[in-house]
């Protein structure tokens, strides 16, 4: 079976309710992503690169754990992050279409987290893992797109900071989704 047929099979399992829930996640994540720009810029302007990243980067990763914990289906994490980035692009922010590129790769990385867990666990720990896994592509894209290239030690520290931020916000997003799911 080709990967395209497999992908179509996964998407075919989505119901109308899943589509609509993805819409809710997209708009919530889009608003959070949009607000994260202010948090990041103010954090960076006052506290430098580490403060900006620890405060804001995790906020840019919450689309995936929020969607995955709410919908609990393969591909939900990727779609939640990517659709949130699309809404952020349409709002728009200073990042413009780069948001879409970031959303695509971060979504894939977070999806990998749920795939590693065999699409069986959707709780807080899985949310933290998905949030943390979105950090490496984000830091790599910062270097490739915005030429944010630092010495190896600083880059490693930035990666750790982004992963911690992603894990904290990811766990929080999963917790919120879990509470909403059972209301």
């Amino acid at each position: 079976m080709s990967w395209l047929t497999r992908l179509r099979g996964l998407v075919a399992g989505y119901t109308g309710v899943d589509y609509a829930l993805l819409g809710v996640v997209a708009v919530v994540a889009g608003i959070v992503f949009y607000s994260a720009w202010y948090v990041y810029d103010i954090g960076k302007a006052i506290g430098g690169i580490y403060a900006g990243r620890i405060l804001a980067y995790g906020l840019w990763f919450i689309g995936a754990p929020l969607a995955a914990s709410l919908i609990r289906r393969p591909l939900a994490a990727f779609l939640g992050e990517f659709l949130g980035a699309l809404v952020e692009t349409v709002i728009p922010t200073v990042g413009g279409f780069t948001n879409m590129i970031y959303g695509f790769f971060q979504g894939l990385a977070s999806e990998l987290g749920y795939a590693l867990l065999g699409y069986r666990k959707w709780g807080i720990l899985a949310g933290a893992l998905a949030g943390a896994l979105a950090a490496p592509p984000c830091i790599a894209l910062d270097a490739v797109l915005f030429a944010e290239i630092y010495p190896a030690v600083v880059t490693a520290l930035l990666l750790v900071v982004a992963m911690v931020s992603g894990a904290v916000y990811g766990a929080l997003a999963a917790l919120v989704a879990d509470k909403l799911r059972w209301q």
Binding site: Y14, Y19, G23, V24, V25, A26, G30, L86, V87
Partner: peptide, 19 residues
């Protein structure tokens, strides 16, 4: 664009004023 992207996007954008 496939409908798994276009429908949630359209629904999400419609939801903005409601929110």
């Amino acid at each position: 664009l496939p409908k798994i992207i276009s429908f949630p996007l359209a629904y999400g954008l419609r939801l903005l004023p409601v929110l």
